[in-house]
């Protein structure tokens, strides 16, 4: 295995609606920023991979348009995943492992404000047995939340506490979208969105983009402050939600074991819904002394296709700021935590 490090991270401020800039302009700003901070000349980037979903733009091959924000002349080696940017980083990491390149750029973007996100996410479901029912992403998460509440005397209060802590943490994050001091009692007294989920249990709808530059050990430029990828692994579970125990996340557990998720100071968990954070903490066996989502997590900003890679970037920011030495970053994909990626990061 080649040692690989994250050299830099950049993101747009996350907001409900990015009305000033196109996707290309958002990509241009984060790519330029990340490359500049990496200390590598742009011409030295050996491979580029992006993560996005054409369903958000409502146009096939919409991701190709984003290349304009990259600058692809002279020609570059480039790839795309119809997944969160965390998986774009995974592909870039693999590419470095194969020896085909020594440095790479991974970026992602999503502008969910252009459509009705809960309904757009119906398109990720099996088109025969699930999609035609018209079930949306919040309803799907609500089925998981109920299953979780039915177990071990779990309560809606525990879920609300996750929302309160996340949005309080986000007060320290200039890029977060939804932040503030909320009271559990008050939140619980509000009506259900889709029972048993309240609005506070759900993520905001977010536009945004981000980018990271990674390099193999022998390509880390002098003066860089590398954050090392000590382990990275992703696993998937059956698509049908009724084929799995929704109260557990065995794919996260396995990915965590493979990535060596121990001795952690912080964990950035990609949990768009409050109960999902509690399921993930359990799957990863995180003790109370591991700080969870100092950035506020996906409950404070949930740019589709971006929020997973953001967890890696936010974990790096904690390490660069000297507030953590060793961190876990998690990304999820699909409905009800179907697919999960775990990455363990460590300062130099």
């Amino acid at each position: 295995m080649r040692d690989v490090a994250i050299l830099s991270f950049a993101q747009t401020p996350y907001k409900r609606r990015e009305s000033e800039r196109t996707e290309v302009q958002m990509v241009l700003s984060v790519v330029t920023d990340a490359v500049e901070k990496s200390g590598l000349p742009k011409s030295d980037i050996g491979f580029t991979c992006s993560g996005s979903s054409d369903y958000l733009a409502g146009q096939s091959f919409a991701f190709v348009g984003a290349i304009d924000g990259l600058g692809a002349w002279p020609p570059i080696a480039e790839s795309h995943v119809e997944m969160d940017g965390a998986w774009a980083l995974y592909e870039a990491w693999i590419k470095i492992q194969t020896g085909m390149c020594n440095t790479a750029l991974a970026f992602s973007f999503g502008r969910a404000s252009m459509g009705s996100l809960p309904e757009t996410l119906n398109m990720q479901l099996d088109p025969y047995t699930l999609g035609p029912l018209g079930i949306d992403s919040i309803s799907m998460a609500a089925l998981q939340a109920r299953a979780w509440l039915d177990q071990d005397n779990h309560t809606e209060r525990q879920m609300a506490e996750v929302a309160v802590r996340s949005r309080k943490n986000a007060l320290n994050n200039p890029d977060a979208q939804l932040k503030g001091d909320f009271e559990v009692e008050k939140l619980l007294s509000e009506p259900y969105l889709i029972e048993p989920l309240h609005k506070h249990d759900c993520p905001p709808i977010t536009d945004g983009a981000n980018a990271v530059v990674i390099a193999a050990a022998d390509a880390v430029p002098s003066g860089a402050n590398p954050v090392w990828i000590r382990g990275i692994d992703h696993r998937i579970e059956p698509h049908q939600p009724g084929f799995r125990d929704l109260t557990q996340s065995p794919s996260t557990k396995l990915a965590g074991e493979k990535a060596g998720a121990t001795r952690l100071d912080i964990a950035e968990l990609h949990a768009p819904f409050t109960h999902q954070e509690l399921i993930l903490r359990d799957a990863l066996g995180l003790d109370d002394d591991v700080r969870i989502n100092p950035s506020g997590g996906a409950l404070a900003a949930n740019p589709m296709m971006v929020a997973g890679l953001t967890r890696m970037g936010e974990a790096c920011r904690e390490i660069w700021a000297g507030r953590a030495k060793r961190a876990l970053a998690h990304a999820t994909s699909g409905h009800c935590l179907q697919q999960n990626l775990v990455c363990v990061l460590e300062g130099d």
């Binding site: 119906n122 029912l133 018209g134 949306d136 109920r146 299953a147």
Partner: peptide
């Protein structure tokens, strides 16, 4: 029924 969710305000795509 092994789990359920109540939709108070149906969306256009709902049955």
């Amino acid at each position: 029924v092994t789990s359920w969710a109540w939709v108070h305000e149906p969306r256009a795509q709902h049955p």
